[in-house]
Simulated scan of single mutants.
Amino acid sequence: MAEDRTEDRPPPRGGGATHTGSRGTCPVCASDDVIHLVIGMPALPEDWGSGPVWVEWVGCAHPGYNRRCASCGGTWTASSETTFHSVLEVMAHAHVDTPDDLADWISEEYEHDAWVRVDDHHLEIGFRNRSVTIVYPVREDDLWESLDDLHDELSEELAAERE
């Protein structure tokens, strides 16, 4: 199970911004051994300050990406929106190891218990006899919106049956 690796980086000596954020997971191999590249000034080592070993200050020489996986060597540019490219990324985000654990994690957010089916390209999530198929890539907020809609439909159907 992946651990929460949110840490604060103290500001560089002489002022500057702090580095606060989740370490994240690699979109290629789902490893949590992610290096954050901080691009821009300050560029002198004495101005960098101390911080997590997984943060590298690279100055103004932009390499074209701001994340690198120390496990597989993959590089990418992280955005403020979380986008999942595989079930491994969803599971890493949820800090779970199996589809059953993912179903339990999703169920924590809803009245009805969730179930999960996985194949190489899709993630199917359902409540009772209703489901939605998630096709990658999918933004995190779109995933939750789909699940909210599905859960609401089921809840309305069950309420109508009780009347």
Rank of each mutant, 00 (worst) to 15 (best):
T98E: 04
Y136E: 00
V55G: 04
D120W: 14
V96E: 08
S71L: 13
E140Q: 15
P137S: 01
G73F: 04
A94R: 08
A94V: 12
G126S: 05
T75Y: 01
D113S: 15
H121T: 10
E108P: 08
H62L: 07
W105A: 02
E56I: 06
L143A: 05
L123R: 01
W115E: 04
W57M: 12
N129W: 13
E108G: 11
H95S: 08
D100F: 06
S79P: 06
L102R: 00
T83S: 15
C69S: 03
V55M: 04
N129E: 12
H62V: 08
D100P: 03
R68Q: 08
A92G: 07
S50Q: 06
C60G: 15
A78F: 05
W115Y: 05
S107A: 09
N129G: 05
H85I: 01
R139E: 12
N66E: 02
E145D: 12
G126F: 00
V138F: 02
A114L: 01
A114G: 07
E111L: 11
D101F: 07
L102D: 04
C60R: 09
G64W: 04
H122M: 15
H122V: 11
H112G: 07
G59K: 00
E111R: 13
H122P: 15
C69H: 00
G51I: 01
Y110M: 04
T83A: 11
R117A: 13
T82I: 05
I106D: 03
P137D: 09
D101E: 14
H85L: 12
W57S: 05
A78S: 15
D101L: 07
Y65A: 06
D113N: 09
E56W: 09
D141L: 10
